[in-house]
Structure formats: C-alpha cells, structure tokens
Amino acid sequence: MGSVVVAGTRGVASRQQSISESRWRDPRRYLWLLGLVIPLTPFLAWLGVHLFGLGLFWAAGGIVMLVVIPIVDLVVGADRTNPPDEAMADLENDRYYRWCTYLYLPLQYAGLLVACYAWTTAPMAGAERFAMATTAGIVAGVGINAAHELGHKRPKHERWLAKIALAQSFYGHFYVEHNHGHHLRVATPEDPATARYGESFWAFLPRTVFGGIRSAWRYEKARLARRGRRTWSVRNDVLNAWAMSVVLFAALLVGYGWSIAPWLALQAVFGVVFLEAVNYLEHYGLLRRKLDDGRYERVAPRHSWNSDHVCSNAFLYQLQRHSDHHANPLRRYQTLRSMRDAPQLPAGYAVLVIVAVIPPLWRRVMDPRLLAHYDGNLSRANVHPSLVGK
C-alpha cells in the first residue's frame, strides 16, 4: 500500500512539474523587439533634428549604440539564467522570434532611404552628413549581425534574407566565410577572424577583411568545382551576394544622384568596421589546442569571450552568448545559453567596441583577463607572431 502511495505521490509531483514547465514563459520575450530600434535611428535622427534643431541628432545611431545601450547595461547589469531544457523545443519553434529578425530588413532599407533623402535635401553641413553616415553605418553593421543570425539557418529564404541584409555594407562574402571558414577555424592562427594576443584592432582589420574575402572565394571555387560548375557564375554565393550590393548602390545613385556616393561608401565602411570590431573582441587571444594527429580540438566554451549584459544582448540578438553559438550554430538566438566555463567580458559589446579601437586601453582592459584565463601561461594563447618567445 505504501509503495502505491509513494508512486501516486511521484506521479502527482511529475504532473505538477510538467505543468510548471509548460507554463514557462520567456521573461525577455518582448525585449527582442529592441533590436528594431537600431534600424529606426535614421528616422529618429530626422525627427530629433526637426524637433530640436540640433545637428547632433544626425548621429542618432551612434548615440543609441554607444551611449544609451552602455548606460542601460550598466544600470541593468547581466543575467546568466537560461531557459529550462524542457522549454527549448517550443522556444526554438516559436515564429514570433523569427519575425523579430525578419522585420529588421524592411526597416533597415527604409532607414537607408531616409539617409539618402537627408543627404540630398536636408540643409546639412559636412560634419552633419558624416554624422548621418555613422547612423546608417550602425544600421548596416547591426544588419550584418541580423544576417549572421539568418545565414546560419537551414530554410533557403532565411539564407537569402541574410544576403539582402549584407547588401547595404557590400559585405556579402561574409555569408560564405563565416559559415564555412570562421566556424571551422575559430580560435586558431589560421582564422583571419580570430584576433591574436598583442594584435591591435587596426592591424587586425585589414587581415580579417582581406583574409575573409580570400577564404570565401577559395571555398566557393572549390564547392562549385566539386559540382562541375564554373566559378564565375550566378551560383557563386560570393558573386551573387556582391551583385545585390551593386544593384542596390546603382539604384540609389540613379534615384538620388552622385552626391550621395561618398556617404554611401562611408556608411558601408562604418558597418564593416563595427562588425569587425565585434569579431576582434569575440575570440581575442583564445586558442584551441592542436592534437597529436595535427587536427585542432573541438570548439569549447573556453574558446569564445562571452557577455550576459541584458540590454546589449537584446539589441544584438544575443550574439554575446557566443560560446553556445559556436557549439550549436543552428540554434536560434532566443535559446542560446550562458556557458558557465566561458571567459567573461567586463562589459557588453557596445562598450568594448569603443575600447577595441583604442589599442592601449584595450590591452590594459583585456590582456590581464586573457592571462588570468590561461593561468599566466601565454604558451596556451593565440599570440601574435611578433610576440612569440618574448
């Protein structure tokens, strides 16, 4: 009789646990809509200038990304909680989260049109046009992040949306290189998108840009050759992604005139610099051990820097939970977990992008953390060749 009672009690407890788990709701569910604020910043810039008459508002993108978000991160702090395992499948399949990324694209391009309109019609001085280019560049840079989220997924339409998001920054090869280059070589000296200990951002920038282009081209050339197809064809994912940018830029130049050309180019540069500054900080100095057979060990949480700051994660589709992303590239952003044994950044990406472009400040902030991560043994780190043996 006692065993029956115990079994019944366990059954009730199990049902109660199941009911509790089925009622779990994502406490950040509506925070993900904050990601849509960034592509709205060209509109906010226009509104701010016309309401207050201050040209400073043309830099609304930079103000939101590099001032507002860091302040909110400082106030709100970090949150390392994860969804329960039992809720992961439903969370992954909830289409609401996909629309939070899909909607970025129409707003991104509407904002680009606003920027072009402002450059050609608003009474702007050169500094104000430059400020608007920074705003459009922030939108493009975060657009690369939206492309990053979409480009990892299996549905073809999401992969095409990734290429569309990349067109504004003329960085379509990222779609190929990130998935088929960076994810294979991450945290190794062979990866152009992994920064080395002692390497400044400004030395890293040309290495990652040109190295990424070369890597993407080699991959596409080999892929098409295996299929018996020509390299120079519309099936080349580097070429068809770049073609989208050519068509976009040509249409804008026809529609708004050649006067927007320098600002259009500048905003693309800003978008790339923002993206590559994020790449710089994500794996700085981290190294996968080479095994006896010459291969590298599997990617582990310790090979990516993480940040669980709530606000910047909401704006960047949880990119800062980077260790789980590398362990599970197909996992959607809302289900990415905080990894307890991953090295932690001292702030969110919005702050550290600023720190990264100031090399002495970066080394003062991050080098001690890298040394602590490796217990002071730099032979375990990914060290810049100029510092090897020192």
Rank of each mutant, 00 (worst) to 15 (best):
133 A>P: 03
214 R>S: 14
106 P>K: 02
178 H>T: 15
167 A>Q: 01
116 C>H: 08
132 M>E: 04
184 L>G: 01
142 V>L: 13
196 R>A: 12
160 W>E: 13
133 A>D: 09
198 G>K: 08
182 H>C: 01
144 I>A: 13
164 I>C: 07
152 H>N: 06
164 I>W: 12
218 R>I: 15
148 H>P: 05
128 E>L: 10
141 G>Q: 01
107 L>M: 04
176 V>W: 08
170 F>D: 00
190 E>P: 00
119 W>T: 11
149 E>W: 02
198 G>E: 10
215 S>I: 14
188 T>G: 03
159 R>T: 13
207 R>T: 13
172 G>M: 04
168 Q>I: 08
127 A>S: 15
143 G>D: 10
192 P>L: 02
161 L>A: 14
191 D>V: 00
197 Y>K: 06
157 H>S: 10
124 M>F: 07
218 R>E: 15
116 C>P: 10
162 A>E: 11
158 E>T: 08
132 M>W: 04
150 L>G: 06
153 K>Y: 02
154 R>A: 13
121 T>A: 08
141 G>Y: 03
216 A>G: 11
181 G>S: 11
179 N>H: 07
218 R>F: 11
173 H>F: 10
121 T>E: 13
121 T>L: 06
112 L>W: 14
159 R>M: 05
131 A>V: 10
131 A>F: 11
213 I>K: 02
188 T>D: 12
178 H>G: 13
171 Y>M: 03
112 L>T: 14
108 Q>G: 04
123 P>Y: 09
157 H>R: 09
177 E>A: 13
177 E>V: 13
118 A>T: 12
118 A>V: 15
123 P>N: 12
182 H>F: 01
108 Q>K: 01
179 N>A: 12
205 L>Y: 12
200 S>Y: 03
201 F>V: 12
127 A>F: 14
184 L>V: 15
169 S>Y: 00
202 W>G: 08
158 E>C: 01
172 G>H: 06
204 F>P: 06
155 P>Y: 05
133 A>Q: 07
118 A>K: 00
129 R>G: 11
144 I>R: 02
195 A>V: 14
152 H>M: 05
188 T>R: 03
166 L>W: 03
106 P>C: 06
108 Q>T: 07
120 T>S: 14
180 H>V: 12
212 G>M: 03
166 L>A: 12
200 S>A: 09
134 T>R: 00
204 F>E: 02
192 P>K: 06
112 L>F: 12
203 A>Y: 01
142 V>M: 09
139 V>E: 09
155 P>I: 10
211 G>Q: 06
148 H>G: 06
169 S>E: 01
140 A>Y: 02
166 L>N: 04
169 S>P: 00
170 F>G: 00
208 T>I: 13
184 L>T: 14
187 A>M: 04
191 D>T: 04
150 L>D: 06
169 S>F: 00
136 A>H: 09
121 T>P: 04
172 G>K: 03
140 A>G: 15
160 W>M: 04
168 Q>T: 02
133 A>K: 04
112 L>M: 13
155 P>F: 05
125 A>H: 10
119 W>D: 12
175 Y>W: 08
128 E>M: 09
142 V>N: 09
209 V>Q: 07
209 V>H: 10
206 P>G: 05
195 A>S: 11
123 P>Q: 08
142 V>S: 02
198 G>T: 15
173 H>G: 02
206 P>W: 01
139 V>T: 15
133 A>L: 06
151 G>R: 03
175 Y>T: 09
217 W>E: 14
202 W>S: 11
182 H>G: 03
133 A>T: 15
154 R>S: 10
